[in-house]
Amino acid sequence: MTELNGIFPFQTALNTSTLFPYNLDILQQIELVAEAGYDGIELWIKDVKAYVDSGEKLSSLRRELDRLKLAPVNAIAFFKWCDQDLQTRKEGLRQAEEEMEMLAAIGCPAIAAPPFGDVSHLDAAAIAEYFSDLKAIGRKAGVEPYLEFWGRAEYLSTLEQAKQIVDLQPMSKMLIDPFHMYTGGSNHELLGSLTADQIGIVHVNDYPGEPSRLIINDEERLFPGEGIAPTKHIATTLHRIGYRGYLSLELFKKSYAGRSALETAKYGLNSIKTAYSVNAINS
């Protein structure tokens, strides 16, 4: 890993998918991410539910986050808020409300909203309308949904489509992910047309040149700076438009070549700070 060159103007977080190979419970995840030196953590709602199902209280989880001074910056969830079937969508919104209330109880301000479900016959106008419904539930709970695009989705697969929806729904934020930009064929130059307040969080990762973007899978994601992603361009663009929020490392690897969980987390933090450092004069 090279030395930090330039300034690092962002905040750091770890998406706990990165730690999946270690089979840690949510308390172990939180303790490890704090020890590794991150500013925040992206939890998976399944782990929050497992904690509650074990008989623990969400107030205790919040106290632990507060004790470790670790911000729960966003949560990963899967509810069918934009499915084209009305009844499916209503059930998705009911699930979203339940999960948002859980997140509010631990002080988590946001939840990811990807195109989960059947979106094959939808367009930007329809999804913008459904996103408005989701935002209304979020306002009531005190948790903001971040519009996420998936590179392999039938619709809402590109930054272009996400921007259309955000433009139709003012005061909305999206989740940016280089891997999904790659697999969906997004135009990286469009990133510069966003305003900082249109970005809720940025997932960071990298990817190899092979296999091709048409068949590459999540398990082949790399640490930032170790693949062919235009990472410096992304970093410079984010800095130029005024984004100073969280960069959250999201990997889905099966193993990390013998590294311990703490070693992996620390290596990831160094990767983020090195790959996303910027030259303050030229950016």
Score class of each variant (00 low, 15 high):
Thr2Ser: 14
Gly6Trp: 00
Phe8Cys: 08
Phe10Gln: 08
Thr16Leu: 08
Ser17Tyr: 15
Ser17Asp: 01
Leu24Pro: 01
Ile26Phe: 04
Ile26Tyr: 01
Gln28Tyr: 09
Gln29Trp: 00
Glu31Asn: 13
Glu31Pro: 08
Val33Cys: 08
Ala34Gln: 13
Ala34Asn: 10
Gly37Ile: 12
Asp39Ser: 11
Gly40Cys: 07
Glu42Met: 11
Glu42Trp: 06
Glu42Val: 14
Trp44Tyr: 03
Trp44Leu: 08
Lys46Arg: 14
Tyr51Met: 10
Lys57Phe: 14
Ser60Tyr: 12
Ala71Leu: 13
Ala77Arg: 02
Phe79Trp: 11
Trp81Lys: 00
Asp83Glu: 06
Glu91Gly: 02
Gly92Cys: 06
Gln95Asn: 12
Glu97Gln: 15
Glu98His: 11
Pro115His: 10
Ala124Lys: 07
Ala124Tyr: 00
Ala126Cys: 03
Leu134Cys: 11
Leu134Tyr: 11
Arg139Met: 14
Lys140Thr: 15
Ala141Ser: 15
Val143His: 02
Val143Phe: 09
Pro145Gln: 14
Arg152Gly: 12
Ala153Ser: 15
Ala153Met: 07
Tyr155Leu: 10
Thr158Tyr: 05
Gln164Val: 00
Gln164Leu: 11
Pro170Glu: 12
Pro170Cys: 03
Met171Val: 05
Phe179Trp: 13
His188Thr: 06
Glu189Pro: 01
Leu190Ser: 09
Leu191Lys: 03
Leu194Pro: 03
Thr195Ser: 15
Gln198Ile: 07
Ile199His: 00
Val202Phe: 00
His203Val: 03
Asp206Leu: 05
Tyr207Arg: 07
Arg213Gln: 12
Asp218Ile: 07
Thr237His: 00
His239Gly: 04
Tyr246Thr: 04
Leu247Phe: 07
Leu249Tyr: 03
Lys254Arg: 15
Ser255Ala: 15
Ala261Cys: 10
Leu262Ser: 14
Leu269Ser: 03
Asn270Met: 09
Asn270Pro: 00
Ser271His: 03
Ser277Asn: 10
Val278Thr: 09
